[in-house]
Structure formats: C-alpha cells, structure tokens
Design a binder for these strands. Structure first.
Length: 824
RNA sequence: GCGAGAGUGGUGAAAUUGGUAUACACGCUAGAUUUAGGAUCUAGUGCCGCAAGGCGUGGGGGUUCAAGUCCCCCCUUUCGUACCA
C-alpha cells in the first residue's frame, strides 16, 4: 500500500465529518468528561503557523482523551468583532460584516483541511446577533449589580484608531494594535468594576496548581495588591483632610513634604492663592501635555511646584510643604503621597532638587545609625524606628501594624489594601463591536434595554469609519428610541464594547450554542465545566485570562456556574518564528504558510514536524529541515508497518506473559510497554517531541523476521498505531481500517502499560570509582550490596583503580549506581 | 530598576527530578548500492590526545560518595512590568 497522503487525508476528513465523530454528547458524564479549549480565532482568512501549532496541540490531547473514553468537548469559533476587521474592511472598501463572514468561511474550510477534531456543530461567532444578544445580556447583569458604570475621567486614547483603550491594551505607552502613542483624553466611559473582584482574582490563583507560574506571577503583579495604611493629614488653618496611602507608615515621622498629582481632584479644594495658583495651573497644563511615555519614565529628574500651602502630620503636628509633582500617579491610592526623602528614592531625588529637608527615622539596626549628611541615596529597607516618639525601637512589619493601629485609635487613619488593577474600560468609539444595550433618557438617566428586547442589533451602515466618536452616533434611526422606562424621547448609547467582553464568556456558550432563551443552560454547563485544558499564547496573560476569570466569578455569584475558576489547566505554547528567530509577519515577508506545507508534505507529516522540532512550550524556529527526519520516519518506517500485519486479530486488552514469547519478542514487549508509559507521560506534559522519539525507538527495534508469534506481531503494530493516532490521525485511521476494524481508531482504547512487563529482573548499572564512571555491571534487580560487590570487583577495570588502594566507602543505590570511594 | 524564565555537541533537543550527560533527530564524514537523486543502507560523529588517559552542561565558588539538576556570587539572554509611595 502506497502512502498517498492526499487521498488518505481527504478520505478521512470526509468520513469523520459524515459520522460526526467529534460531536460532543449533549448529556456528558461530568465525572468522565474532558473540555479541551483552544482560544477562538480572529477570522483573518489565513491560518498561520502559530494557529497551526496551537490547534494541533489541542487536537492531539482531544484525540487522546477520546481514546481514554472521555466525553470530549473540543469546540471552535470566531472572535469576530474588533478593530482588525474594520481596518481590513476600510482598506478593501467592503463592509466589515461582509469581510468577516467571508473570512469565517475561508478560515473554517482551511481548518477543516487540517483535520482538527473540532466539533463544528457548536461553532459560534461573536459578531452574530444570536451570540452578542447574550454579550449584551451579560452587560445588563453587570449593570444591575452595579458592576457596569459610567464615569467621566481621563482615559487612554489612541489618536490613530480614534478610540479608548483599556489599560491592558496599552503596551509601553503605545496602542497594542497600531503602535501609536496613547494620549490622555477626558471622556465619559463605561467601566466594569473588576476591582471588586481583585482580592478573589489574586487569592484564587493559589487554587490553580496547573497554571504556569509565570502567568500567575504576571497576574499577581498586574493586580498589584499591597497592604498599607490610609492616613489623613490636615491642611493648615483649614478643616480639609488630605488622605494619603502608604505602605510604609513606619516612616511617617520622616515626612518632610507632601506631593499631589497634577490631576488629583483634591487640588481644587485647596483654594490656592496668588502666584501659587498661577504656577500650579501652569504646571498642570504642562503635565497634561507631556505624553505618558515621558511621564512614566523613571528618572531622578523629578519636578514639581510648591502650592504655598502646608499640611500637618497627625503623628507629630509638624508642618510640611505641600507640592504638586507629576511623579505622583493620580490613579493610584489617593493621588497624594506623604514624602519621606530619607526612605524613598523618588522623594529623595525630589528633596535634593528643591532643597527640602531630609529626616532619618529608620536605622538599619540599633548599632548602625544612618548619617543624613553622608546619604547619597534613600535607605528603603525595613529597620528600627528612630526619632519617632513613642514608636522608637519598633521594627519592620510590627512597626507598621502598631503605627497604623494608633491612627485607627485616634481616628485619623486606618489599615488599607490597595490595587494597581483599575476598572476595565469597555466603551469603544468604533463601529464593529457589540452595541452597548443602554438608553439615555433625559428624565430617567441611563436605562438598560429590556432583556426581552435584546439584541440591540448593530445596524449595517455605509459609513463606519472612525471619526473620534462612534459612527453609530450619526445614525438617527439607530440612536433615537423611546425610553424603556418612561416611554419618552431618548437616545441609545452610541458606543460599542471592547471585544474582550465578547471573549470573556464564549467558552460557556459552546456548551449550549443554540439556546435562544438563556445564555446557556446551567445543567449543561455543569456537565462540561470547568475547562480541563486551555491552550493558547502567552500574550493574553494579563488581559483575556484575567477578564474570563472575572466573568466566571461574576456568573458564579449569580448562580449560573458552579466553579470559581473557568479553567483547571492552562498551557501556553511557544511562538513560531522563522529560522533567524524573527517573529513571522507579513511586513517582514518571512511568513511560512502551514497550508503550503501541508499541501506539499501532508497534514500528518506537518504535524509531526511541528511536534518534534521543540517541546510545545518553547519557541520554534521554523525551517524546512524540521520536516526531514519525521517525514522519513512517517513514510519509510511507520506507515509501511501495515505491510507486516498478519491478520491475526489479537486481543488488544491482553497482557502477554513471559512464557508466551521468545526472548526477542519479550524484549520488544518490554519496550512497547515502556513506550506506552513514556508516550502517555509525554502527553500529560504536552511534550510531544519525546513521545515521537519513543515511537521512533519502538519502530526501530521492531524486526518482523524475528517475530514468530503472529498475534504478538499484530498486537505490537496495532498498539504502535494507536499511540501514534493523536499525532498522525489520518495515517493511523487508515491503517486501523486497513487492519479490518469497523469503527474509528479514536473510539478504540488508549494503550495501558503492563506494569509487570517493565519491572525488569536484571539491570545494568554504572560502577564509579571516586565518582567517575569506570565500568558497567549487570546485576539482578533485587541484588543486595554484597552480591553487587562481588560482581563489581570481578571487573578488570575496577581492579585497575582499586588494587593496592584503601577502600574508604562503598555506596550502592539499588537500581541506580555502585560507587567505590578509595583513598588517593 | 524590579519580577519571572532560560543558557547542555555544528543544529533542534533528551536526561526516570541528586545516580552511567548528550536519548531521538538534523547536519557532517567515510563506505555500499544506484544511470541519476533533495533516494536507500552501513559505520562514525562532545572536546583534547597516537594511546593510556584527561576535560566537558554560560563563568567562579560551595554542599555531597555522586551536581545539568541543590546553595551563593557573577555574565549573557528572553519575557513581563514600569515612578504603584
């Protein structure tokens, strides 16, 4: 039989489709299910190497889980709203809806050619009303709970894309999508109050042992929880309280000035006078025009202006200068900081520049005092409190607690937890997104659209180009509605939602994709959730992967889902680069299309090449050399094994006994079981490269001429194909049918290791002398030290190094090593 | 700056988690076969050395009978983050 991959691959893809092989059952056994999720795709029309890698990893696992007898859910869909579609549509002068629909078709048929085991009956697209109806429903639930709110404030604005961006979409001060420098803009915006979930989002990371540590660390840092105190300073000659947040209340006796962010609201309450007022106004203007990049640059060159006002430190009654400085962040804490130059490097730089006093209140320890006059930088570590009145002598964390407790007693402060995480800005002034289901009524204010009137359909308009406000605002037939509350004249909210809202709950919709009365059926979701394995790129670590956890928690609070966390295990595959290590991109012209590769070499060989060339979590530098070795293996070694079948119909659940097989046969049986174990382990770790090398060894050791037992021969071959099936599904399925089986190989049972076969009765171990390998000996597995010594000392090589030398010690580790320590 | 990874042959990479370093491939070198081959097969392939032997997992220390693996200090590199008080 010739290996004609084109024929084989087309044949089986068709058959799989006809028999709905990958259709997940509607009634799954919650104790025996496997939800295999890959991140749904943006339908750009072409599938690149990164997608290919992502999907074959999920595919191999889904197929193995099928063979393990699980009810497997392996769905796919389209993250179809968003800027790229709009941009592409503008470039080509077609409507985003048409462009997207067309591309979904192209992308789907391409993926079907790759033979990924997706359950296409559950396909969803976030831009279709039957899906976004429920995205709007989610918005309304959040709104009802006070978790969706509108506020005016400074937002990230991309001048190129003419829309607001979430903090998560700003990288290095630039728009993640187009690279344009982001500016601040004062806008009325919708937010999701994700900060209400900040604690749970941090704490529950500890319940996810199968998430990569780097992602958990990134999320922890992004959420940025810190423990400290909020302390009220007071304005001199005024009742005004000026609250500050600090993580170092133990340094509070060292405050020599205070600094207020230029945008901080409290600045307006200070009633500045005369020249100070003008100077501060000037400074504010200047700060606002500086870009984020400039302002966030960490330098020692801090600047600010004095307000002419003074604040009183509640601990010691000291009067300190009140400054405005743009190194203070308006959006964190209270927007005001107490400045302790001796113990904070930023305050130190500022104090030096403006000749503000520096006062030491912490010593590294009792016996090593700090000398202010010799300090060239702030001492920021913990230490012993000094010059701090009744708190002198207190140390580190205890000091912090006691100082804060005092503030609570005296009622001018309290313990306080703060987060770097900000509420999620979700309004977008763009056309191609999910409309916000809110109506603005002059009488009633913001009113949500009634749930029975969802979806608020996105009108298909001709002019969808961005112009600084939502293009929908210029569509009167969309905008002008009756208020759902009072029936009076009202207008819709013209913005659309961030696409990350659409992708925050898609994994739930897959489970019940056609439901028209609720977003999903709770019972059905309970059968398949949580996601057992979620595979995707690392890029979403602090965006989508926080958002979808937030949604899951919110839906749990509403009683829609039962788990706190959506995904038990997360796996980030490595990137695919070209052979020079450059990320593949159209502009660089170094894109290798997986489609071309598969047309030339076949899907299965392409999959093998991608799997074999590097472990799944590592970056791959793709080169056509990656294909050579595995192609030879597949075509010349693995596939031709079918010719060695002897039609003996072996019982694949059987475990052979030693006496049934010849010595060679039994050695192969041992090897087979070792390989079963290794391949299974490799699958658990998603390290398919080692699974393939194990299979290569097994096939290498196979020798038909030396096998007399027909049943064993076929057993070995069929197990080999079963083990290969998740990696090379078409090839394996072909042989399975050729061998005479009726059903799919993916309905057969994944091989289970015969443990008794891999317990060897003798073993070769190394003999070391003073830690250096000198010889090997073969000894029985349960050999005691005495017997091992006898064998070891028979060796000439060992004698050579031990004769005439004093033996100090012998270390014998059963099954591992024999080490002799000699003197000299 | 801070945080988290990574560093093993000419190359992609293995290493049962402290126990024979370099499995499996690519490449290369010989040879065989072939009209030819981007084919196949056989042998070799960490470095130094004729050999015995020595040296070898970024560098330097350490723990141990034994270290790629554990500890300390550096170097390089990737990713994340960026004045979070």
């Amino acid at each position: 039989m010739k290996y004609d991959f084109k024929e084989i691959e087309t044949k089986w893809q068709k058959k799989w489709d006809e028999t709905s092989l990958y259709q997940a059952p509607d009634n799954a056994d919650p104790n025996n299910k496997f939800y295999m999720l890959v991140m749904f795709a943006y339908p750009s029309g072409d599938i690149h190497m990164g997608h290919f890698r992502n999907y074959i990893i999920g595919d191999a696992i889904a197929r193995q889980q099928m063979m393990l007898g699980k009810d497997v859910l392996h769905p796919f869909g389209w993250d179809a709203f968003g800027l790229p579609a709009e941009r592409a549509a503008i470039q080509r002068d077609i409507h985003p809806a048409d462009w997207t629909t067309k591309n979904i078709g192209i992308s789907r048929s391409t993926l079907q050619k790759v033979g990924i085991s997706f359950d296409w009956s559950r396909e969803i697209a976030s831009c279709f009303p039957d899906y976004y109806k429920w995205t709007q429903w989610m918005f309304i639930q959040l709104y009802k709970k006070g978790l969706a709110y509108r506020k005016r404030g400074f937002v990230n604005w991309c001048p190129e894309d003419k829309t607001v961006l979430a903090n998560e979409q700003v990288k290095d001060g630039k728009c993640e999508r187009c690279g344009t420098e982001v500016v601040k803009k004062d806008q009325n915006q919708w937010y999701f109050k994700i900060t209400d979930y900040a604690d749970r989002l941090v704490d529950d990371l500890d319940t996810l042992p199968d998430w990569p540590d780097n992602v958990k660390t990134m999320q922890r840092e992004w959420i940025g929880r810190s423990y400290g105190a909020e302390i009220n300073f007071s304005l001199e000659n005024s009742d005004l309280k000026i609250p500050i947040y600090t993580t170092r209340p133990d340094t509070i006796f060292g405050v020599t000035f205070m600094a207020i962010a230029p945008e901080a609201e409290i600045l307006d309450s200070l009633n500045l006078e005369g020249e100070y007022k003008a100077k501060v106004e000037d400074y504010k203007k200047k700060a606002m025009t500086r870009s984020d990049i400039e302002r966030s640059a960490v330098t020692d060159d801090k600047d600010g202006v004095f307000t002419g006002k003074y604040a009183i430190n509640p601990y010691n009654g000291e009067k300190v200068e009140l400054w405005v400085a743009d190194y203070v962040l308006a959006g964190y804490g209270t927007g005001v900081v107490m400045a302790v130059p001796a113990h904070d490097s930023r305050d130190f730089a500022f104090a030096k520049k403006y000749n503000i006093p520096i006062k030491v209140v912490i010593h590294p320890d009792k016996d090593t005092p700090l000398d202010v006059n010799k300090m060239t930088e702030a001492y920021t570590d913990y230490g012993v409190m000094v010059n701090s009145g009744q708190f002198d002598g207190l140390i580190g964390k205890i000091a912090i607690i006691q100082v804060t407790d005092f503030a609570e007693q005296e009622e001018f402060g309290c313990h306080k937890v703060n987060f770097k995480l900000k509420d999620w800005s979700i309004s977008r002034q763009r056309y191609w997104g999910c409309p916000i289901p809110i109506v603005h009524c002059k009488k009633c204010g913001t009113v949500p659209v009634a749930e029975e009137n969802l979806p608020v359909e996105l009108p298909k308009v001709k002019d969808f180009k961005p112009k600084g406000r939502s293009p929908l605002a210029d569509v009167p037939e969309y905008m002008n509605v009756k208020c759902p509350n009072c029936g009076g004249e009202a207008v819709r909210d013209s913005d659309t939602m961030d696409t990350f809202v659409c992708s925050s709950w898609y994994f739930l919709r897959y489970i019940d994709p056609k439901n028209d009365s609720v977003p999903f059926d709770k019972e059905k979701v309970a059968q398949y959730m949580p996601i057992d394995l979620y595979v995707g790129g690392i890029t979403h670590a602090t965006g989508h992967l926080i958002y979808f956890r937030f949604f899951q928690k919110f839906l749990k609070d509403l009683g829609w889902v039962k788990d706190d966390e959506p995904a038990k295990r997360l796996f980030n595959h490595g990137m695919v680069c070209d052979s020079n290590g450059e990320v593949m991109s159209k502009s660089k012209g170094n894109v290798v299309s997986p489609i071309g590769l598969m047309e030339e070499r076949g899907v299965d060989v392409s999959r093998l090449a991608m799997f074999f060339t590097a472990p799944s979590d590592k970056e791959v530098l793709w080169s056509s050399d990656s294909v050579t070795g595995v192609e030879k293996f597949a075509i010349n070694k693995l596939f031709p094994l079918n010719e060695k079948l002897r039609n003996s119909n072996p019982d694949l659940k059987y475990y052979f006994k030693r006496e049934e097989l010849s010595e060679f046969e039994y050695s192969l049986y041992i090897k087979l079981n070792q390989v079963i174990k290794q391949v299974s382990d490799s699958f658990d770790k998603l390290q398919f490269n080692t699974a393939i090398s194990a299979l290569m060894e097994l096939v290498r050791d196979y020798d038909s001429d030396k096998i007399k037992n027909d049943s064993f021969n076929d057993y070995l071959i069929l197990k080999t194909f079963q083990l290969s099936a998740p990696l090379v599904p078409h090839l394996a399925e072909e042989i399975w049918a050729f061998a005479g089986f009726e059903g799919s190989i993916f309905k057969s049972n994944w091989p289970i290791c015969d443990e008794s076969a891999i317990i060897k009765d003798s073993i070769v171990i190394g003999v070391q002398i003073n830690g250096k390998l000198r010889d090997e000996i073969e000894i029985p597995i349960d050999c005691d030290q005495k017997r091992a010594e006898e064998v070891a000392f028979m060796s000439d090589k060992v004698k050579k190094y031990t004769d005439g030398k004093e033996i100090l010690k012998i270390i014998f580790v059963k099954g591992r090593i024999f080490n002799i320590v000699v003197k000299g």
